[in-house]
Every structure is written in structure tokens, then in C-alpha cells.
């Protein structure tokens, strides 16, 4: 699936079609690396990267093995010699296991390392809680210099990777594991730090980040539309730096904001939105996300989210509460 194909895809077709952000990321990175010798793929035994990079681009690939602390500091060292390293691991291993290496060596030195993670949220589904990652947005956005981006689908992932090659500082890109619905169709210029309007509406605003949350936000807007309520849907792909202007506008022009994320409510998108509106334009906010608890059962990603209270129906209910309807 190329960008051109995505741009000409009809929305109805696109919503039925699912593409893996992880696969698109890998292909786009390999394509960019083939013509830009600064790009360097740092693998930590993820599987698959060695075929894409190791064989055709051996000078721009290294596998550190199952050693995430080393992954981060080696990437920092490579960046210091002029490379643009893409450090690949699972979200929880990047944000929690190797947290200090990211904080001290990468963010602390403002080095242009791109930490691209998979298995975020509950996208590892039945693999269980050790492979889920519900707190990485909170962890990463506390680090000065760090940019935090959560693409909402494969198309946006491609735009993110292509447009951030020359970002001077560190970047955290939060991807899931499996295929997710395409929500970004048609021509689209990705602008880092600027929320994308997916749907216009002046009654209430739904702000979402990540694949399923954004898709669910659109479905919730349809539910609300059937009740005559116009929901504005913002895809907040950049959680840090967050689009303050879009949030102020939402507070001014609509009854309030519902946030949606596949992340705990502590410190995530909802918290970041509250930080902005509490200071700039206090307004009603309801946050939809994962509870302050560990999962002790497994299921597919979507089922886990719905079970935990992240669903189009719950988003719509929250929107009704925000507006007092």
C-alpha cells in the first residue's frame, strides 16, 4: 500500500480495509534508508528487520539482541556520531525497562534518536499484560526534549516517518501490533504538533489518539449525529507538544471535550488535555481510557478495550454528559 494508493482510496473502502502500521513503518524506513545513509536501524531481536535492513543495508543496521538498555544507549552513541538511529523495541520495554537510558542518554542529551515502538496499549491482546503498555505516553511526555507521536493508522504512520527524518531532537513513535482500520484517507499533509480535524462539529469535541481510539471516536460521532448532536473529532496524533490552539478553540466553540486513548487515564492524553484547558479555557471534560488496574484476563485488543470501557458507545455517553444533553 503506497501513499498514492491511500490517497485515492475511497473512505468506505478504506474503513473496511485494515493495514498494519508496523509493516508500513518498516517498509517506509527501508525505502528512506536506501537513499539516506544517515538513517540507521537499531534492532533488538524484533524479528523481520534483519531481512529488510540487514541484507540490503548492512552498514545501516545492527542487532543488539534482547538488551533494551543497551539498545537505547547504543542508539544515543550512534546519534552522537552523526547517524539518525531508529531504535526498535516493544513499547513497555522502551518506556519502562529502558526508561533511564531514554531519559538520561537520549532525551537528556537531546539526541535525534527515533524510538519506534510496537505493541502499545493492549494491542498485544492475548499475549497478556507483560506485553501490554498502558503508561508509556505518561512516561515519555515527562521527558524534556521528547516529542511523542501516536499515529492513528498505517497511512499516518507513513506521513509521520517521512516528515520527521530531520527532526533535531528525540522522537517517540507509538505503534500497535496488528492491523487496524484506515481512518486517514484522501490527501493529507501531516503537520507535527497540529491536530487533524477528522470531522467538523460545533456541539461537542472528541479528542482521540491512537488507532482504535480515533476509529472509535469517529463511530461515536456517528452515534451522536443520529441524535442530532454535531461532534467535532480531532486526531491528536502529536501528544507532545500538544496542539494547544485546537484545544482552546474546542473549549470556545463547543460544550466541552471528551478524550479517548488506549492508555491509563493517569498522565495520558486526557491528562494532557486537562492541563491545557484548565489553564487556558476551563471547560467540561470527560476522559475515556483504561482504568487504574492491571488486566487479569486476556482477549483480543478490541474486546479488551470495550471491556475496560473504551468503546464508541461509552464515548458517546461521555459526550452527552459533557453537553448536559
Amino acid at each position: 500500500m503506497t501513499t498514492a494508493e491511500l490517497e485515492t482510496a475511497a473512505p468506505t473502502w478504506a474503513q473496511r480495509y485494515s493495514v498494519s502500521s508496523r509493516e508500513v513503518y518498516r517498509r517506509v524506513l527501508a525505502e528512506l534508508a536506501a537513499t539516506d545513509p544517515r538513517l540507521f536501524c537499531v534492532d533488538s531481536d524484533m524479528g523481520g528487520l534483519e531481512d529488510i535492513f540487514g541484507a540490503p543495508l548492512p552498514q545501516q543496521y545492527v542487532n543488539v539482541g534482547i538488551a533494551e538498555a543497551n539498545l537505547m544507549s547504543v542508539s544515543a552513541g550512534l546519534a552522537d556520531t552523526g547517524f539518525l538511529p531508529y531504535a526498535n523495541t516493544i513499547a513497555g520495554f522502551a518506556s519502562a525497562r529502558a526508561c533511564e537510558q531514554v531519559k538520561v542518554d537520549i532525551a537528556g542529551n537531546n539526541l535525534p534518536v527515533r524510538i519506534v515502538v510496537t505493541h502499545s496499549g493492549v494491542s498485544a491482546g492475548p499475549y497478556g499484560p507483560t506485553h501490554h503498555c498502558l503508561d508509556d505516553i505518561a512516561i515519555m511526555r515527562t521527558m524534556p526534549n521528547m516529542t511523542v507521536v501516536v499515529p492513528s493508522d498505517a497511512a499516518e504512520t507513513e506521513y509521520v516517518i517521512r516528515s520527521t527524518v530531520d527532526l533535531p531532537g528525540p522522537l517517540y513513535v507509538r505503534l500497535g501490533r496488528g492491523a487496524t482500520p484506515l481512518v486517514n484517507t484522501g490527501p493529507y499533509e501531516f503537520v507535527l504538533g497540529r491536530a487533524r480535524w477528522l470531522r467538523a462539529g460545533d456541539d461537542v469535541t472528541i479528542v482521540a489518539t491512537g488507532a482504535h481510539p480515533v476509529h472509535m471516536a469517529l463511530r461515536a460521532a456517528e452515534i451522536l449525529a443520529r441524535r442530532g448532536i454535531g461532534a467535532r473529532v480531532l486526531n491528536m496524533h502529536t501528544v507532545k507538544p500538544i496542539d494547544r490552539a485546537a484545544l482552546v478553540r474546542a473549549a470556545d466553540e463547543t460544550a466541552g471535550i471528551v478524550t479517548v486513548e488506549d492508555h491509563v487515564l493517569v498522565g495520558g492524553l486526557g491528562a494532557a488535555v486537562c492541563e491545557v484547558v484548565a489553564e487556558e479555557r476551563p471547560c467540561p471534560v470527560r476522559r475515556i481510557g483504561l482504568p487504574d488496574a492491571y488486566f487479569d484476563y486476556v482477549a483480543d485488543e478490541r474486546d479488551l478495550l470495550v471491556h475496560a470501557g473504551v468503546s464508541p458507545e461509552r464515548i458517546a455517553e461521555a459526550a452527552l454528559a459533557v453537553g448536559g444533553w
Binding site: N70, S73, A76, L78, D80, T81, E100, Q101, V104, D105
Partner: peptide
């Protein structure tokens, strides 16, 4: 990064990985 200081340090166990990354980068270039 004072003049002459390549990386801030203090949290133990970081320097050798940083050095390995730098050494790899130097060699690859």
C-alpha cells in the same frame, strides 16, 4: 557536555553502551 565532556554521567552502567554506540558509529563511517 562541558568542553571535553562527551556525555553527562552519574547513573552507573550507561557509559560502556554509549561508548559502544559511538565506536560503532565511528567505524561505520
Amino acid at each position: 557536555r562541558l568542553p571535553g565532556v562527551e556525555f553527562p554521567s552519574g547513573s552507573l552502567g550507561h557509559g560502556l553502551s554509549l561508548g559502544a554506540g559511538v565506536a560503532l558509529g565511528l567505524r561505520r563511517t
